[in-house]
Design a protein around this nucleic acid. Sequence first.
DNA 1: TTTTTACGTCAGCCATGTTGACATTTCCCT
DNA 2: AGGGAAATGTCAACATGGCTGACGTAAAAA
Lengths: 170, 170
Amino acid sequence: MADVKSPANPLFLREEELRQGIEMLFFAYRDFTGEPDAMLARIGLGRAHHRVVYFVGRNPGITVSELLAILKITKQSLSRVLSHLVAEGYIVQRPGLSDRRKRMLELTAKGVELEQMLTDRQRKRFAAAYRAAGAEAVQGFRRVLRDIIDIDDRHRFPEVSALPPGPGKR
Amino acid sequence: MADVKSPANPLFLREEELRQGIEMLFFAYRDFTGEPDAMLARIGLGRAHHRVVYFVGRNPGITVSELLAILKITKQSLSRVLSHLVAEGYIVQRPGLSDRRKRMLELTAKGVELEQMLTDRQRKRFAAAYRAAGAEAVQGFRRVLRDIIDIDDRHRFPEVSALPPGPGKR
DNA sequence: TTTTTACGTCAGCCATGTTGACATTTCCCT
DNA sequence: AGGGAAATGTCAACATGGCTGACGTAAAAA
């Protein structure tokens, strides 16, 4: 029963490998959110606002229910954040074209500016990591991360096709 | 300046690539935490408890300040969660050996059981993703994720060395 | 016309983060 | 030996962002 840390024990290696993955995801997310959080705090907003601004910016015209499906929170939780962003002029709502019950959400110029400022740090973090790791590692990264996501949301990310196994840079 | 990506519109592709990375990290973390959260809710605990139980289980004898350095929350926030876990018999505290001001934290049998149950789902999620993606992709995943973590915490994760292209049955 | 859908809103609860102030025990240095 | 610093705990108050439940309205669909 003793969990002997034998290097010849494949089960131990596997367990260690998985635990490290779990921890890296925790640390990465912790640091990934840290910088925007600090900026948001200065203007009286929170991480939830960033998420909304991000996904509205990324999907102009997105409806409330589509946003809910992405965030996986209740409409009441979203409402608090979203109405504040509308009131502050970061987001505008317009009735849907084919279905006027829907509210199409879009960033205002002010919203775009905010989104840019917030996401900029995260983009730079990724850019540095991608550059340091190289294209092949990035492909592996995407492949694994995609498979960690629940199956019903993987469609949001195209599968990475196999690169020709070139011997390095090209 | 070695951004040899696409001859067509490298800036756009790069932006898209980075945004997808950001989003995948969001979705992965959302789903990664979802299952344990549901279990925790049933026994009156929260995600914060899971984090504490996880890192104490992973680092038996860890001190409060080491835990704080990992979680990056205030001692008051930790205190609330930790004292509850101690009161409920998931964790025991013992004075440090060389420095008796420190409190060495350890899981009880009950704590181990809880940790196993919670982390089990996450481990399985990673195991499935790792298996589906293959050893090379996992290496890239680790490489990139490690570089996303703030530099002062990267030491927690060994750099991935090139694997010998063994007769892997993955 | 009736029902369903998409969205909004009010009210209250809970978990978990924050700041600030202060107490205790123990270690370390002069 | 004495005094400051360190590691930890604690109390109180507050903010954020989740949640449930109940109810309302406009528009689409049946």
